[in-house]
Amino acid sequence: MTELPAKVMQSLLAGLGRFSLMVAEVLRSLTTQRLSGRDLTSQLYYIGVKSQTVVLVTGAFTGMVLCAQTYFQFHKVKMDSATLAVVSVSMCGELGPVLTALMVAGRVGASMAAELGTMRVTEQIDALRTLATHPIDYIVVPRVVATMIAVPLLTAESIAVGIFAAYLVGVHLLQIDPGYSLVNMQRFTDHRDVLMGFIKSFIFGGIIATTGCYKGMHCGQGAEGVGHATTEAVVYASIAILMSNFFLTLLLTRLLALI
């Protein structure tokens, strides 16, 4: 009876150990190896530029629906002009970073796991090793660095578009007073909210890339193995983003209060 939980625990701990070793190797590579500008640029293009559409659409519609829902509640207590302030604070500190990271995890994390998984099952990763190239240096580090740069930038875009879309809905559709709204938005949105969103999205970028690369590099054999790795990369990254978001909110609120 106790054999199954023991096996699951053993497998979980082994996985965590392998993941930690990979992250340690990434950090070692970052401090000792030269990162190829060409590899980084091509990853930045794929992860950052190509993800813009999905991130912008997500940001815009999130801002719009958040504005509408907030307005419907605030209108009952005659607080219409606080609507955009709520949208702004929520988008900067929570919804912008989290939703952007979840969308990037779905698009980029899955793609990394599938690409690296295919490289593994077709012996391309072994071929790299025989060509005196460490797979972490060539495959993982450019992806991790590019994702950690791209996700904060995508988050900034998503927040800006979300607030702008909310403004359009609030002012032109729901007839909220634009002057009071903008003043309230500036009054309640602190630089700490922006900084919190930036720090979170930087960490989420690291989670997405390391999870996607880890799952790809340790995937099972054949098409089934690649399929499982792709699914697990998205699921694990999404769960890790949502869980870490809670703890980051508590931690960063305390830390940023000191500034």
Partner: peptide, 21 residues
């Protein structure tokens, strides 16, 4: 793995599937 990289510089390998990138 890092120590092995220098040793593997002496080796070339043709894989069964060629393993081209």
């Amino acid at each position: 793995e890092r120590e092995l990289l220098a040793v593997r510089r002496k080796f070339g390998m043709l894989f069964q599937s060629a393993a081209l990138f």
